[in-house]
Amino acid sequence: MKQFLALIALSLAVALPVKAQDKGYWRASSQTASSITGDIFITDAKLTMNFLAWPLVPVRALKPVEISAVFDADSNVAQAGNLYHISVAADQRLLHKNTLCGKEQTQWMATWIDGRNLHVAFFSGATPPVFTFDAIRNSTDLCGTFLYTR
């Protein structure tokens, strides 16, 4: 009986989705991240970039197929990611006087953990982004993707 219960517990542990842990300090590791945001720090309630902080509101978890659409990841390998609402003014200057979304207000942030890497995509637009291959490919709201590491 103990073996049976242990087998069930192990099966449930393997079957449960792994929650993406995007919280914490991340070092900029792509050229885009290094030249625009620098290192970032994510908490449950805020995003900090270039010593400036913005409120961060969790919206929902992203599915592997959605992660695949925005981050060009294998949907069979991609774990869950997250979508957040954020409000970074269009004229907010970061590193080297760069902005996140050009002349548009940044309103959405999508994250995905890949090993020790954090992939982040920022979006403008009043409505949440649609995470399909066609929608992302034709989107004018995708501001850019950034890569960070631990």
Rank of each mutant, 00 (worst) to 15 (best):
G38S: 04
D72Y: 12
K63T: 09
Q21F: 00
K103G: 14
Y25A: 09
F131R: 01
I136E: 01
V65H: 05
I36F: 03
A121M: 07
N76G: 10
R93T: 07
W26H: 07
G81T: 13
L7I: 11
V18N: 06
A9W: 02
L47W: 00
A110L: 09
Q31K: 10
C101Q: 07
V18A: 11
E104H: 14
V88E: 06
A53S: 15
M109C: 10
P129D: 03
L56D: 02
V14W: 08
S75V: 05
R116P: 13
F123G: 03
N98V: 02
D91N: 15
S87V: 08
A80C: 08
S87D: 14
V120P: 06
F133K: 15
V88D: 04
D114K: 14
A90P: 10
P128M: 05
S68W: 02
A13W: 07
D114R: 14
A78E: 06
S29W: 05
S29R: 06
D72T: 12
L147I: 08
A45R: 06
D39V: 04
A78D: 02
L47R: 00
D22P: 00
T99P: 04
Y25K: 09
A135Y: 10
R116D: 14
T140G: 11
A33S: 12
I136H: 03
I113F: 06
V77T: 11
S11G: 14
S30C: 04
P58K: 05
R137I: 06
T145Y: 02
D44S: 11
L147A: 11
D39E: 03
L83Y: 06
M49H: 00
Q79I: 09
A61V: 00
A89V: 01
A126M: 11
G144N: 02
L118Q: 05
A61F: 11
R93Y: 02
L142I: 04
E66C: 01
A89G: 12
A80Y: 13
G38E: 02
I8N: 03
V120L: 08
A90R: 13
I36Q: 08
Q21Y: 00
T111D: 05
A90H: 15
V59Q: 04
Y25N: 11
L12P: 07
L52H: 05
F133T: 15
I113Q: 15
M1D: 10
G24K: 01
K2I: 13
S11C: 13
L52W: 00
T37F: 04
V65D: 08
L12K: 03
R27W: 07
K23S: 08
I36A: 01
S87M: 11
R60N: 06
S124M: 07
T48S: 06
I136R: 04
T132W: 06
L62M: 11
A28E: 09
P17H: 09
L83Q: 12
T43Y: 01
A90N: 12
C143P: 06
Q105H: 13
S139I: 04
T43W: 00
V130T: 15
K103D: 15
A15E: 10
C101L: 07
F4P: 01
I86W: 03
C101P: 09
I113L: 15
W112K: 12
